[in-house]
Nucleic acid binder design. Structure first.
Length: 263
DNA sequence: ATGTCCACTAGGAGTGGA
């Protein structure tokens, strides 16, 4: 089974790009972030024709998360919950579904903007809320994943310039604390677990040629419980889908791919 | 290099967000 998380930076702008990815990489479950459209506007027909069911929690203009499930692996995936209780003012950023015997959560952590901006405190609080949510609502003895755009660099190896950005947004101890609590709850960063010393980024700024200069961050993460971790065969980040394709603009994030042994 | 891309409003280019 192939699991993916991908911040697409507007599904409307990226639809052809995403459909190309589904055809080329044949994932089974895809956690999406930054749909930037309402649930009513979601292009369900295109995904049904590609063989996927989409479960979404969207809003107009910003944010929005979803999970695509290949019909072959589960014809009837179910929404378990949407939204982070107490943090609704930050927008539509969380959905948990039950699909193919897995608990699957797609999360889009607030960016935070700058350390001085009120959104930074809201980001840290949102992460704490996510940890509480996972602790209370996700069956951790189960096969479960929590995947998405965390907007946090877990460790120095995950930043192109950790010294230059020490203590900066995405790199602070308070943000990283939100990730370490997930670890304490039994969730493992599946990419890092598979590749302890490999530097690989999932996001590059559109500006200044950052992608070509390899100035990126690994902020798109897939956390899994032991029952998932024990099945991981490979973990990779698909840089090819951060490149322009047939003149079409990519997202500023690349898909993260986790391959599991079938049960 | 605050260098790009996206949505929205508006009816063309500016604004806010990432």
């Amino acid at each position: 089974m192939r699991l993916v998380t991908w911040n697409v930076n507007s599904l409307t702008a990226r639809l052809d790009f995403v459909l190309d990815f589904l055809a080329a990489r044949a994932p089974d479950i895809v956690c999406l972030q930054e749909l930037k459209l309402t649930d009513d506007a979601f292009p369900h027909l295109a995904f049904e024709q590609a063989g996927f069911r989409a479960l979404t929690h969207g809003q107009a203009q910003w944010n929005g998360v979803g999970v695509l499930v290949r019909r072959d692996v589960d014809p009837e995936p179910k929404i378990v919950a949407t939204g982070l209780p107490g943090h609704e003012s930050m927008g539509a950023r969380l959905i948990t579904v039950r699909a193919a015997g897995l608990s699957v959560t797609s999360a889009y952590v607030p960016n935070g903007k700058t350390l001085e901006h009120p959104d930074y405190q809201a980001k840290v609080a949102w992460l704490r809320g996510l940890d509480d949510y996972v602790e209370r609502r996700v069956e951790r003895g189960d096969a479960a994943i929590v995947a998405g755009d965390f907007n946090v660099v877990p460790e120095d190896i995950d930043s192109w310039d950790p010294a230059g950005h020490a203590g900066d947004i995405f790199h602070t101890a308070a943000e990283r604390e939100g990730l370490s609590r997930l670890k304490d709850l039994g969730f493992v960063d599946l990419f890092r677990d598979k590749h302890p010393d490999l530097q690989a980024f999932s996001w590059w700024d559109y500006r200044a040629g950052a992608f070509h200069k390899r100035q990126g961050l690994r902020i798109d993460l897939v956390y899994g419980t032991e029952r998932v971790r024990s099945r991981v065969r490979d973990a990779s980040i698909d840089r090819d889908f951060r490149k322009k394709r047939e003149g079409r603009t990519p997202s500023d994030h690349a898909p993260v791919i986790i391959d599991l042994e079938d049960t």
